[in-house]
Amino acid sequence: MRTKITQEYIDRDRRSFLDKVFKGTIGGSLMLMIPMHSPLFAEVLNEEKSLKDTIDPMNPNANYCFIVDVSGCIGCGNCCVADRKENDVPEGQYRTWVERYVIDMMNKVYVDAPHGGEKGYSNIPILDTIKEVKEAFFVPKLCNMCDEPSCTQVCPVAATFTTPDGFVLIDKEHCVACGYCVQACPYGVRFINEERKTADKCTWCYHRVRKGKLPACVNACPTGARKFGDLNDKESEVAKIYYSKSRLSVLKKELGNEPQLYYIDLHGEVV
């Protein structure tokens, strides 16, 4: 009987109910009365569960791929903010960043990335130096997850490696922080984490992917310029793009690292 009343109360206004529970208006004893089968409870528990411990088994058959649509990036910096928080990246170091390329009428190339683009962009100081802009665009950068990584090759203690499901990760319990991988990475995505004193870099949010979630930056992107998925899943957005006519290119192709990070219609000036 009592349960029914509570249930009705909850159903009437869940949020204000919860509100009161947690602000202490409704005592803790009432909390105990909430039936375990209440949908509200289930929701909350589900939420907690999906955030914490629903780790999928490793999927070695997947061919994960990251695609950046340069024409979609608006340079808002949300991805960088999300990334810093999600991965506890110290200030001044970057797992991902957004560059701005501006080409003027004389074909001069201006590149900037104040604070890695994290704080967004404004027209200053670009407008002071450039009179007429011919072309301008943003280029998000992150780990290229190379098929032939230079960084894992040079690690003297095998503290960085490619997982069976294709992610290049760092074993932060084993890394000695010699910095050789930082030198070897052609894309400048590696750094020595100032707090942990080990090598660090973007993991394409491996911990999220294994929980069935998108990387934090993909989730944060308002325009869908960042796309992530499994190429072997023909229904995924990345597979559709990858197997369509769109022109994909990778950075520094001539080095032979075979990145799994692709850009759609990348301007040739981008390195």
Binding site: R14, R15, L18, E43, V44, N46, E47, S50, L51, K52, D53, I55, M58, A82, K85, E86, A158, A159, T160, F161, T162, T163, P164, L169, D171, K172, E173, H174, T203, Y206, H207, R208, R210, K211, K213, L214, A216, N219, A220
Partner: peptide
Amino acid sequence: YGYYRGDSIEEEAQRAMKYGTNESCKGCH
């Protein structure tokens, strides 16, 4: 799995997420 400390993969996979998705808010808002 290879010439590295295999457990480090699971350690990384178990790292807690901070951001959910928009689904996370749906239930209550």
